[in-house]
């Protein structure tokens, strides 16, 4: 939980990347997330999150294949690094700690 922390949106994108595995490229991530969140997102938001996380070392990427649908341009496939997995785990632990604390105060929430 030092300087390289995940933003809330970044966390969602990161988990989507992990789920999508070999299909984790820009448009696919966007489509997937939109479906889950039931709202329209902008391509810029997704791309900015991806690039930020790559800068921080949570993601790596390699060129994928091109397709005609993409006007002959190659995809960039993203993959989470072990640091990303640690960060996600950390976030999850903090959340569950907080939930427990909340439930203790008010059992109805649980």
């Amino acid at each position: 939980m030092k300087k390289n922390r995940l933003g809330e949106f970044q966390e969602l994108v990161l988990m989507t990347v992990i789920i999508l595995q070999d299909e984790a490229y820009g448009n696919e991530i966007l489509r997937n997330l939109e479906e889950r969140l039931q709202e329209r997102l902008s391509m810029g938001a997704i791309q900015a999150a991806l690039k930020r996380m790559e800068e921080k070392g949570f993601l790596t990427s390699v060129w994928g294949e091109a397709s005609q649908k993409r006007g002959g341009k190659r995809k960039r496939i993203y993959q989470a690094t072990p640091e990303a997995m640690n960060a996600l785990q950390e976030m999850k632990d903090i959340r569950s700690d907080l939930w427990q604390a909340m439930v203790l105060l008010n059992p109805n929430i649980g």
Binding site: G26, N27, M43, Q47, K73, R74, K75
Partner: peptide, 13 residues
């Protein structure tokens, strides 16, 4: 290249 491709794909979608 990457982003333009994504954008074009999204356009088709």
């Amino acid at each position: 290249e990457e982003v333009e491709g994504d954008m074009e794909e999204r356009f088709v979608d």
